[in-house]
Amino acid sequence: TFEVERIVRKKIVHGNTSYLVKWKNYSSKDNTWETEDDIRTKYGDLVDDFEK
């Protein structure tokens, strides 16, 4: 199971928000862009903290 360590960046393309996710126990080269809906479902607190 993958676990988010932190959110690195945010991008908005054509009105759709995605977050660059750093995965726990993986290197930064393994970071992936994930949709806001996918990340918010399980890691809403991390998204809220990133947006502060």
Rank of each mutant, 00 (worst) to 15 (best):
K42T: 09
N25C: 09
D48F: 08
I12S: 08
I12E: 08
K52E: 08
D45S: 12
I39N: 03
R6E: 09
Y26N: 10
K22R: 05
W33F: 02
D45C: 08
L20Q: 05
V21A: 00
E51N: 09
T1V: 14
E51L: 06
V4D: 01
F50M: 03
D37P: 08
N25K: 07
E3N: 05
V8I: 14
I7W: 01
V8Q: 04
D37M: 12
N16K: 15
S28K: 08
S27Y: 06
E5L: 07
E34C: 14
V4I: 14
Y19R: 00
T32F: 02
T17Q: 03
T32M: 02
N31L: 14
T35I: 07
Y19K: 00
S18Y: 15
N25M: 07
D38C: 15
G44T: 08
D37H: 13
K10C: 08
K29L: 12
R9G: 14
V21I: 13
E5P: 04
E5I: 06
K10H: 03
V13S: 09
F50G: 01
N31G: 05
S28N: 12
L20A: 00
G15R: 03
V13P: 01
K52A: 11
S18V: 15
I7P: 00
K29N: 11
T35D: 12
D37V: 12
E34V: 15
N25L: 06
N16E: 14
G44L: 09
V4P: 13
E51H: 05
Y43E: 03
I7A: 01
N25F: 10
R9C: 15
T17R: 05
V4A: 13
Y26R: 15
I12G: 05
G44K: 15
T35G: 06
Y26T: 14
E51S: 01
V47G: 01
E34I: 15
R9N: 12
T32G: 02
E5H: 03
I39W: 00
I7C: 15
N31E: 07
E5R: 02
I7L: 07
R40Y: 06
N16W: 09
K52G: 07
E5G: 03
D49Y: 11
I7S: 00
E34R: 06
L46C: 04
D48C: 06
I7T: 02
T32D: 00
Y26A: 13
T1H: 13
D45N: 13
T35C: 09
L20C: 11
G15W: 03
D30V: 09
W23I: 01
D49E: 15
D49A: 14
S18D: 01
L46Y: 05
Y43G: 04
D49I: 12
R6P: 02
K29D: 12
D48H: 08
V47F: 06
N25H: 11
W23V: 00
K10M: 06
S27T: 12
K10A: 05
W33L: 01
K24V: 08
I39A: 08
T41G: 11
S27K: 09
L46R: 03
G15C: 06
Y43F: 11
I12M: 08
W23H: 02
K24R: 11
D45I: 10
T32I: 02
V13L: 10
V21H: 01
L20G: 01
W33V: 01
E3G: 07
G44D: 05
H14N: 15
T41H: 11
R40A: 06
Y26C: 15
R9Y: 08
Y43M: 04
K11Y: 06
K42C: 13
V47M: 07
V13E: 12
K24D: 02
R40F: 04
I12N: 06
D30W: 15
I12V: 13
F50S: 03
F50H: 03
F50A: 02
I7R: 01
D37A: 14
G15N: 06
N31P: 07
K52H: 09
N25T: 08
R6C: 15
D48Y: 07
D30F: 15
F2M: 15
T1K: 14
W33H: 01
E5M: 04
Y19P: 00
S28Q: 10
S28C: 15
N31A: 10
Y43S: 05
G44P: 15
K52Q: 11
Y26F: 14
K52D: 07
V8C: 12
T17F: 04
F2E: 10
I7H: 00
K52V: 08
E36M: 07
F50K: 03
W23P: 00
E5V: 05
W23G: 01
T1M: 13
Y26K: 15
E51D: 07
I12D: 05
W23T: 01
T35S: 13
N25S: 09
T1F: 14
K42E: 08
F50W: 10
D38V: 12
E51W: 04
S27E: 10
Y19G: 01
T17C: 05
T1L: 12
N16G: 08
R40G: 04
D30I: 09
K42N: 12
N31W: 13
N31R: 05
V8N: 01
R6D: 06
W33D: 00
S27H: 09
D48E: 11
D38S: 13
N31K: 05
R40W: 04
I12C: 12
W33P: 00
E36D: 05
T17A: 10
S27N: 08
Y19L: 01
V4C: 07
N16M: 15
S28M: 12
T32W: 01
K42S: 08
E5Y: 04
R40V: 08
I39Q: 00
K29A: 13
I12T: 11
L20R: 04
S18T: 11
E36S: 08
R40Q: 04
H14M: 12
